[in-house]
């Protein structure tokens, strides 16, 4: 296992999670993007050490990098690309509707919380 890549994965994950948990949609998109990077690097790292491109006849099989994780990674990249696009479309729609790009709280949950205790400060309202 490669410590440098591990570090990259860990760093990308941490920053990605930090941004994903923010209230701004643009940051959420960035966070998801970074998490996507972390997963694909993790997947190819899972396949073993770096090697020659897996072209049959180009190098001996034992010198090649593992092709299977590459194929999985490719699928993962495309899927996460599609989802990112969808997230962007959703964000755009959200901006049209509410004029900003902040994630809103669920109204019904808020209503019940208000019934329960009156309008109190909870942890996430600090986050706004």
């Amino acid at each position: 296992m490669n410590a440098a890549l591990l570090l990259a994965i860990g760093g990308l994950t941490a920053v990605g999670l930090y941004l994903l948990t923010s209230r701004s949609l643009s940051r959420i998109v960035i966070g998801y993007s970074l998490l996507g990077h972390a997963t694909v690097v993790a997947l190819i790292t899972a396949g073993g050490p770096a090697g020659w491109p897996p072209i049959a006849g180009g190098a001996a099989p034992e010198d090649m990098s593992n092709p299977l994780p590459q194929a999985l990674t490719l699928t993962a990249i495309v899927i996460s690309f599609g989802l990112t696009l969808f997230l962007l479309a959703l964000a755009r729609r959200q901006r049209t509707l509410s004029g900003d790009d902040l994630v809103e709280d669920d109204l019904e949950d808020r209503r019940i919380a208000a019934v329960e205790s009156g309008p109190t400060e909870t942890e996430d309202s600090v986050a706004t």
């Binding site: 296992m1 591990l6 570090l7 994965i9 860990g10 760093g11 990308l12 994950t13 941490a14 920053v15 990605g16 999670l17 930090y18 948990t21 923010s22 209230r23 701004s24 643009s26 940051r27 972390a38 993790a42 790292t45 899972a46 902040l102 942890e123 996430d124 600090v126 986050a127 706004t128």
Partner: peptide, 30 residues
Amino acid sequence: FPKTGLRWRTVRMTVAGLGGVAVVIGLAAA
């Protein structure tokens, strides 16, 4: 980007950091 409260940001940072560590540990142990 909107600014957020310090306490909540600390929570987020801690959790995010732990998440990164968890993934690293997972790969290293596996």
